[in-house]
Amino acid sequence: MSVLVYIENWDGKFKKISFELASYASSIAASLNVPAVALSLGKVDNSELSKLSVYGISRILNNPDERFNALDNQAIAKAVAQAAQTTGATCVVLAHNNLGKAIAPRLAVKLKAGLVSAVNGLPVSTEPFVVKKMLFTGKAFGHIEMLSAVKVLTLSSNSFGLAEKQVTASVEFFDPEMVDADFHIQIKQTNKVTGKVLLSDADIVVSGGRGMKAAENWAPLEELAALLGAGTSCSRPVSDEGWRPHSEHVGQTGKIIAPNLYFAFGISGAIQHLGGVSSSKVIVAVNKDPDAPIFEAADYGIVGDVAKVLPQFIEAVKEIKS
């Protein structure tokens, strides 16, 4: 038996989210008294793979087949299902990101497993197996019992954190039975955002709303983000206006994020926006309207003009970083 975790890579490298998943899987494995096994698909160096052992993974399966780099959910689900079967996994963990969300439901059907997506932290109990997740876009939580023998979970990023637990690990070549017909998609073009922190991997997120007034006003916001090593996001009207890309839109109809620190500049704090950010550990709001609902969700706030506050923030961050 095992707990299996699928670990995605980005050009052969892992990210914080990868190690959080490893930590999470080994913690569940410990409570079930079974080993934690990781599966990596696509080319990743052994030195990178063995980093997973720092977070309690004792068996690391990998297959360097380049075809997996196409992020074809059907092919990956097939390979993960085979790894789950050969390791006797009773619980399979994936990231709650674009790839994990695509694989998990297909995998659950293959394994006749129940699926709970976007779980927040460790199971509430393992006997019966109950997990907690956010519902109604942050307006409530639910305790969900999983009734199947095998369970598939996707973990909300930054809901568990990192837990170091060095173990000795074996790195093994894993050879799933795959045929050419398992790879269904043909990639015509890829646009990678380079030099930016992934929103799902960011500890700090700096966000702007309609109060930023125009696309060209984002320069100081981006400067602040760069100084903090933060990701950038925005409210829905901002991406609708085309001031920022759709991938930055957070909220009910955009991405749901839970960084340690979220800055809201010129965002009113509509309920649909808060749904996407209310699990952030600390929220800082800057808004010129003292009655803006964002202040009800915020931990720290400044009633003031973003144009006056941003330069002061930048100056202060430069001071503390030097």
């Binding site: 439901p105 699926l115 956010m134 109604f136 876009t137 639910g142 996707t154 009910q252």
Partner: peptide
């Protein structure tokens, strides 16, 4: 937007 499941579509395809 109620149970935030991300599941029905992928399950149906499978």
């Amino acid at each position: 937007s109620d149970y935030n499941g991300n599941a029905v579509g992928g399950m149906l395809a499978e």
